[in-house]
Simulated assay, not measured.
Amino acid sequence: MEDQNLRFLQDAFLNTHKMCSWTLTVDGQLVYFNSLDQELFFNLFMLGDCSSVIRKHFTQSDMPIIAADQIGFVWVAVYQKSVDDQQDPLVHVLGPIIISEVTEKQRRQRIQELGFTPDFEERLLSLVREVPTVLENVAISCTRMLHYCTNDEVIESDAIVLWNESAVREEDIVWGDARWHGTWLGEQRFFKSVVEGSYDGLRELAVGHVGGIGGGDPLRQAKNEVIILSVFCSRGAIMGGVSSEGALNLSDNFIQNIEAAETVAEVRQIGGAMHRAFIDRVRLAKANQGYSPLVRMCVDYVETHIFERIRIRDLVQEVGYAENYISRRFKAEMGQSLVEYINQQKVEVAKSMLKGSVVSVVELSERLSFSNPSYFSAVFKKRTGLTPLEYRKK
């Protein structure tokens, strides 16, 4: 598109979101800017890893990239392809912007760690207050608009590459590492993975760093981190199709396990089991979308009351159809009776909890509202071929 359309869009970003625009050649020469402080922010951008990562990215791909530096500044970069030999490729940048909330104390500490002169630090800190804070969905929308304006091409949000200067190498990630929390890039990708029912989300979340949220107690720190994880899991599961009450009940139950844990290792094990349990629920919800409304109502009822004693007469009263009719329709579509389905779902929850905590079989039986531990063990063995204790050892 013509330059005047690009300038109009850049001015719109500045006036509506206070997002500054930059245009550079592929080798980093500044062509255009409407920045708050051109020299300071351009130097900051060029000195950080973001600029080199963006240039390297565009040697391999022409898709946009959103990069976050270790101070917490985020930079949007869009590659403008060369349409003919008369025009060299250009890189259009939006930024700096702030997406994740960082206190002034944290930002000052990060800036000091970079080894700038005291005068430069103070100048940078004074300008930080003018850097706009933008919601991540707004940043992504602006990226898509800028790409369309410069390349006349519509792209989806998941085509945008996300990169963080503080990212931990994927092969080095250990669940529960104190670095996992704190960056919007990892959080958003993790959240999306839960919504989609993907097991890969914990790798996406393992970026950034976490502050002290345990008062110096490693066990309390680990518990608080996993409780935060439960919030992401439950909200993502709800968006993925799990009933809100069912997701929150599952979260509450795992939080009980977290609080009862006695070691950091046990807390981390619970976190991994909790993540798997929520992903399984999302996948089940998506698989059930093809069933009739009546069957989905039954499934939702079981999910919502999974930790209670589920009586068929209560479910029938809730659904509002005759028991014989419900039973026939449910078995015809699901291939098993309602009682069998209820037991199956309780066993699935039990499997997750057996993997993730040292809760006793008696206590687990009580939490899932079985009449007694012997009946629970019999149902579990019928479904898995193992007793609960054998399953835990395996």
Rank of each mutant, 00 (worst) to 15 (best):
D49R: 15
H57D: 01
G201D: 05
Q4V: 13
V168K: 10
I255Y: 03
R203K: 14
Q336C: 15
S374K: 14
E308Q: 15
E366R: 15
N164F: 08
H147E: 09
S292M: 15
G240C: 07
V134N: 00
S243L: 04
A247F: 07
S369F: 03
Y148I: 07
A167F: 10
R179P: 01
V226W: 02
V195F: 03
G241V: 07
V134E: 02
C142N: 12
N43G: 09
R107F: 09
D200L: 10
E262G: 07
A206S: 10
P89H: 06
K192P: 01
L368S: 07
T304A: 14
I342Y: 00
V316K: 14
E363F: 13
H275W: 06
V102T: 13
V74M: 04
L36P: 02
E121T: 06
F307H: 13
Q60R: 04
A332E: 12
A68S: 14
M353D: 10
R108F: 01
M297S: 12
M274W: 00
P293Y: 11
V302Y: 01
G356C: 14
I238S: 04
K351V: 08
D314F: 15
W180Q: 08
T25S: 14
S374Q: 11
S377P: 03
D49C: 13
L162F: 13
K56D: 06
N151A: 06
E101I: 13
Y148K: 09
S100R: 13
E340M: 12
L250R: 15
N224P: 09
P293R: 10
W22D: 06
F254D: 04
F120I: 14
F42S: 07
K346R: 05
H305P: 02
P118C: 03
V210C: 13
V168N: 03
R55M: 09
E39G: 11
V362T: 10
A378D: 11
F73K: 06
H147V: 09
R276W: 07
R110W: 05
I238A: 05
E262N: 11
N249A: 15
T183S: 06
S61H: 05
A67C: 09
A322W: 05
L146H: 08
D314T: 11
P64H: 06
K331V: 04
E348A: 08
I99S: 09
S61A: 10
F120Q: 09
V267K: 04
R313T: 03
G216L: 06
V174M: 08
S244F: 13
S21F: 10
A77W: 02
T387E: 01
G272A: 12
I140Y: 00
V134F: 02
K192H: 08
A167T: 11
F232V: 10
N324V: 12
H181R: 12
W75R: 07
R268I: 15
Q269R: 13
S100F: 06
V347W: 01
W184F: 13
V128S: 01
S357H: 08
G176I: 07
Q80R: 08
A247S: 11
V134G: 04
